[in-house]
């Protein structure tokens, strides 16, 4: 039962790979996705810096990327990946599609969080003579913060799921371990360990996200 062909080093390496993939693509994805999500709110018709051009172009682009399942995106953009990281296999090769997958996702959830802010808040900001940037920085983001944290938690958990598929390009990580050892080599022990690790990881992430959101909302 407790026999396995996977060494401790391999296991630790796959954990590191997973954290690396999730962490890196979350950071870069947020750097792209958060501003994009905010821009989708403020440029929409009736928004504080309404821009038909930007909105009409970016909105469908986000939709297009959002409609591709990760496993398809992963292989579809291999030429692009190769252009960026000069390789199409390994952990770095997985990060490019992960970012392209998660950034539009983050943009969308950020957009939804910001849209939840009461119009009255924007009206108050305008009546005080706030610039669009000030309205975003001092009004929209603080008021949406709790919701933004929960959105990013969801994005992180989604990323974790996507990294499991990164095995398809030899991306490594804990999901890869489960498939190449647990599934293909019938190593049920490592399968079990992986499942438990994933469950714990998701639980911890979600609880942390909930706790942080509740804290900023002072619930």
């Amino acid at each position: 039962m407790f026999e396995t062909t996977v060494t401790m080093d391999q296991f630790i390496q796959s954990m590191i790979d997973t954290f690396y993939m999730v962490g890196f693509s979350l950071v870069i994805g947020s750097i792209i996705g958060i501003p994009l999500g905010i821009l989708l709110v403020v440029t929409r018709p009736g928004g504080i810096i309404e821009s038909k051009l930007f909105y009409k172009i970016m909105n469908p682009i986000v939709n297009i990327f959002r409609s591709l399942p990760f496993i398809i995106l992963l292989v579809a953009i291999i030429p692009f990946t190769r252009l960026i990281v000069h390789t199409s296999i390994g952990t770095p090769a997985a990060i490019v599609p992960l970012i392209i997958y998660i950034a539009p996702f983050i943009a969308r959830v950020v957009e939804n969080s910001i849209l939840e802010v009461d119009d009255g808040i924007i009206e108050a900001a305008e009546s005080m003579g706030a610039t669009p940037f000030q309205t975003i920085w001092y009004f929209l983001i603080p008021e949406a913060l709790g919701s933004l944290i929960l959105s990013l938690t969801t994005a992180t958990i989604g990323l974790l799921g996507a990294t499991a598929m990164a095995g398809a390009v030899g991306g490594g990580g804990i999901g890869d371990l489960a498939i190449s050892y647990g599934y293909q080599r019938f190593d049920s022990f490592i399968m079990l360990v992986t499942v438990v690790v994933l469950i714990v990881f998701v639980q911890v992430m979600q609880s942390f996200g909930n706790w942080l959101a509740a804290k900023v909302r002072r619930e």
């Binding site: 009461d118 009255g120 108050a124 009004f139 008021e143």
Partner: peptide, 9 residues
């Protein structure tokens, strides 16, 4: 405003 529009955060 009628609904005050204060920032709850």
């Amino acid at each position: 405003f009628q609904h005050f529009n204060l920032l709850n955060s």
